[in-house]
Design a protein around this nucleic acid. Structure first.
Lengths: 340, 340
DNA sequence: GATTCGAATGTAAGCGCTTACACTAACCTC
DNA sequence: GAGGTTAGTGTAAGCGCTTACATTCGAATC
């Protein structure tokens, strides 16, 4: 067992079972087309030799791999973890395998990863967000690789998306904040360049201000990568301004948790001295004290639906419709109601 | 650009450039063997046609993919995130690509993933932990796929490992706990079946008790999957016993954070009413209040060294030595010194 | 100027698999 | 029982690439 010198091929199995390679292939891929007796013989040869199909060859000949690729911006924090896990579970249940790569929020790397995944035979791709170089969409179309953009809802994009409306969601949260009497709003946003979700959230925030007769240009905004530490630093910067914000709204929960720590380091208490809000409702938001007011996103549902939709596209059952999921404002202790 | 009907092949490029396929192939793989003038001609044909090599074919013919596969038990929490990120960064810097799959802590799924990754042409594999069916190691050996086991240090295993000694590390932490005067120790462990790290940590805990003349069998142990919620539930169970533990030691930080919340829900304050310890020192451990006493693990260093070692193995430079990293006890507020 | 040599390129044989098509029996149908 | 089906299997043509080996040709050598 432990000194196999060489890997068995279809040919070896065929020879061992006394049939043609075609029959072996059929046994593996469409067993119902082979009579039971033959199949048994073949299968025991497969077993005996410890045969496993060579994937490269298979891909080349059949052009199907039952592999789905996903490229997420980061693995470092949990933003995508839950959704991706659900995505993977659903894929697994349907006989597909998931391959993940991460792009570190860099479009160039993402492109590399897309090509790499396609080259490795991915039948379909899950990408996060929607904005990217049109050339990459052409590339995928030329190869008939279905792509689904998740974490965004963007019905008119021409690309299927599954997710929620980042802009509306943030607007709703901001409306709540304003209804609570906050007028001095500070913002810690993710980097908006090359990140349509971050940009949409920021835009939603501005929408809310405008709708309430506030001046969006007067609002201090710090853009910084999604890392806890950055949130802490940014909060301290915001609190050093002449007119201190009464609330700091963050582009996601990671930044919000950082902001919370930043406040604590400054000796400020939340929400008494300053309120903080997040976005995503990842586990972190409920672990810290005070728990963070945020926008709840149905991560698992999104992952599951993405898997179903993408497989439909791959198997040519679906045309790749856009699916909208509903997010909800999740009120918790980190946001103070100033009207009380 | 957007209506390419078909994907260009090597042949197309060769025809366009007026050279043979061999020359095109050489341009791509060992440019120094082609004279400059020809190379330029070929390259502009490549550019013009938007050619990208077909991976399946390449794998089949060359048997090299510059792809490394990694299988981690879970993506849901951050235990492996940081290390994996560093692993990926190092791979990327050296021209390799990372493909990740997750096994949900199930050996059967892990085996599937291993086969899938190998089939997809992975040049090498990073696995977490060391214990698994010997047949799978045979399978990999037969295909000459180097494997590196990470997150463990296990010099006599015959397999290269890069990581730290889970048993010793936990023993050191437990020693500290005992030195602080704790005698009633409750334990929330990960599931030890099929998880050598969890088992080793628990064993290390027992070692410390024995070394200090305490009875390890008297120690209440709850095994539960690594999820925050489970930590909370387990803590409540432990605190309902007749003799309440003065400290609850957890198999990792995720459980510890859960335990912390469980304590809070019970109206207990940490560390006054009960101390809590974790393991791994993920970001979470410093975010919660009180911050958690834990075992610090050099995640990024581990990821980076794993990448270097694995590439060495793939490129036949290294024999796959075992690399030990040092963990350190990280004292924080969640552990109370009873001797003061 | 004939010979040698080596660098640049071409030729063609696989790599391991799938599948269209061809073939062979066995079984119906009238 | 001739002709027509049909189910089961075999034959062989690729899939797109790499690379050992063959060929060519200009420069160097004597």
């Amino acid at each position: 067992m432990s000194d196999l010198r060489t890997v068995p091929t279809l040919d070896d199995v065929a020879r061992a079972a006394g049939v043609s390679t075609a029959t072996v292939s059929r046994c593996l891929n469409s067993p119902e087309r082979v009579v039971e007796q033959t199949r048994k013989r073949v299968m025991s040869a497969v077993e005996a030799l410890g045969y496993t199909p060579n994937f490269g060859a298979r891909v080349m000949a059949a052009k199907r791999t039952f592999t789905i690729g996903a490229i997420i911006p980061t693995m470092e924090n949990a933003i995508f973890a839950r959704g991706l896990q659900a995505f993977q579970e659903e894929l697994h249940a349907r006989g597909y395998m998931l391959l993940v790569a991460s792009s570190a929020y860099q479009p160039k790397i993402e492109e590399d990863q897309i090509r790499a995944l396609v080259a490795r035979g991915a039948d379909g791709l899950l990408l996060i967000g929607h904005d990217r170089d049109p050339a990459i969409y052409d590339y995928l179309r030329a190869r008939s690789i279905p792509v689904l953009s998740a974490w965004v809802y963007f019905p008119d994009s021409g690309q299927p998306t599954v997710g929620f409306d980042n802009r509306q969601s943030m607007r709703a949260l901001a409306q709540q904040v304003i209804d609570y009497g906050h007028r001095q709003i500070g913002v810690i946003s993710g980097i908006t360049k090359g990140n349509d979700r971050a940009a949409a959230r920021l835009a939603g925030l501005r929408d809310a201000l405008v709708a309430n007769g506030l001046d969006p240009d007067a609002m201090p905004v710090i853009e910084t990568p999604y890392e806890i530490e950055n949130g802490a630093v940014a909060l301290q910067t915001l609190m050093q301004a002449d007119t201190r914000p009464t609330v700091v709204m963050c582009g996601n929960d990671v930044l919000a948790v950082g902001a919370l720590r930043g406040a604590r380091d400054l000796g400020l208490s939340v929400p008494e001295d300053v309120s903080i809000t997040g976005f995503d409702d990842i586990e972190l938001a409920r672990i810290v004290a005070p728990q963070i007011t945020t926008v709840h996103v149905p991560h698992r549902e999104m992952g599951r639906k993405a898997a179903i939709a993408l497989i439909d596209m791959v198997e040519k059952r679906g045309t790749g419709d856009t699916i909208e999921l509903k997010s909800t404002v999740q009120l918790r202790d980190s946001l103070r109601d100033l009207t009380c």
